[in-house]
C-alpha cells in the first residue's frame, strides 16, 4: 500500500502547483465568452415572439441550472475516487465543489422565480424543473451540513462521499418522479429550452454562455481547491516553501 503514502505526501503540492498554472487558462476564456454571450444575448438577439424581452433571463438561468446538476456529478465522481482509491486530493475537490454547486442551484432558483413572475404572474409555480432544482438545493445543503457536522476531517470526507454517491444515484430517480408527478397534476410549464425552432441568433449566445459558465466553474474550482489544500495541509512543510 505504498502508493497511498505517495499520494498523501506527493500529490497535494503537485496538484497545488498545477491548479495554479491552469487557473488563468480557464478564467480568461470564461470571462471573454461570458462578455461576448451577454452582448449577443442582451443586445443582438431579437425579443422572443411570445415572451418579449423577459426571455433574456434564460441566458443566466439555463447555464446555472446546467451547472447545478453537473457540479453535483463532478462532486460525486471526485468523492467516489477519494473513497475507492483513498485519494485525499479527490476529497478536497469534492469539498470545493459543494459550495459552488449550491450557489449555482440558488442562482437558477432565483432566476427561475424572476422569470416566472412575468410569465405566470407569480414568483413560484410547481414547475417540474424548478421543483427538482429545489430538491437538488436541499441535497447540497445536506451534504454541506454533514461535512460541517463531523469534526474529524477524514471521517467527514468519507461519510460525505457516501452521501454524494447515494445522492447521485437518486437524482435521476427524483427528477423522473417529479416529472411524473407534474404530468399528472399538469402544472403549466413555460420553460422549455429544447424548442427546435430557436433561431441561431438566440441559440448561439446561449451555447456560448453554457461554455463560459462551465469554464468559469473550472477556474473557480481550481482556486477553491488551492485554498482547500492549503487549509488541509497547513502543517505540512511544503506550504512554507510555496508561500515564501
Amino acid at each position: 500500500m505504498n502508493w497511498t503514502w505517495f499520494h498523501r505526501l506527493g500529490s497535494p503540492p503537485h496538484i497545488y502547483r498545477i491548479a495554479g498554472t491552469l487557473t488563468p487558462w480557464f478564467a480568461w476564456p470564461a470571462g471573454l465568452l461570458i462578455v461576448a454571450a451577454l452582448y449577443g444575448g442582451l443586445v443582438l438577439a431579437p425579443p422572443d415572439y411570445q415572451q418579449g424581452e423577459g426571455f433574456r433571463i434564460l441566458y443566466v438561468h439555463a447555464p446555472s441550472a446546467w451547472l447545478a446538476v453537473m457540479i453535483y456529478g463532478v462532486m460525486a465522481s471526485a468523492a467516489a475516487v477519494g473513497l475507492i482509491w483513498r485519494m485525499k486530493v479527490a476529497h478536497a475537490v469534492a469539498a470545493s465543489c459543494a459550495g459552488v454547486g449550491a450557489w449555482f442551484t440558488a442562482v437558477s432558483l432565483v432566476t427561475g422565480m424572476l422569470w416566472g413572475k412575468p410569465m405566470w404572474g407569480t414568483y413560484w409555480v410547481w414547475d417540474p424543473r424548478l421543483t427538482a432544482q429545489l430538491i437538488l438545493f436541499i441535497l447540497y445543503l445536506g451534504y454541506m451540513g454533514l461535512r460541517a457536522g463531523i469534526d474529524d476531517l477524514g471521517r467527514a470526507d468519507r461519510a460525505s462521499a457516501v452521501l454524494a454517491i447515494v445522492g447521485v444515484v437518486n437524482i435521476p430517480i427524483i427528477r423522473y418522479s417529479v416529472e411524473w408527478w407534474n404530468s399528472i397534476h399538469q402544472a403549466p410549464s413555460v420553460m422549455k429550452m429544447d424548442r427546435p425552432s430557436m433561431p441561431l441568433d438566440m441559440l448561439a449566445p446561449l451555447l456560448m454562455m453554457l461554455l463560459g459558465f462551465t469554464l468559469y466553474f473550472a477556474a473557480i474550482l481550481l482556486v477553491r481547491l488551492r485554498a482547500e489544500i492549503l487549509r488541509r495541509e497547513r502543517t505540512a512543510s511544503w506550504i512554507r516553501e510555496v508561500l515564501r
Binding site: I135, L141, G142, N170, I173, I174, S177, V178, W180, W181
Partner: peptide
C-alpha cells in the same frame, strides 16, 4: 431529516 427527506421524494410522489 435534511439528508433523508429529499431522498424520500420519489416514495412520497408515487
Amino acid at each position: 431529516s435534511l439528508l433523508t427527506l429529499p431522498l424520500a421524494v420519489p416514495v412520497l410522489v408515487f
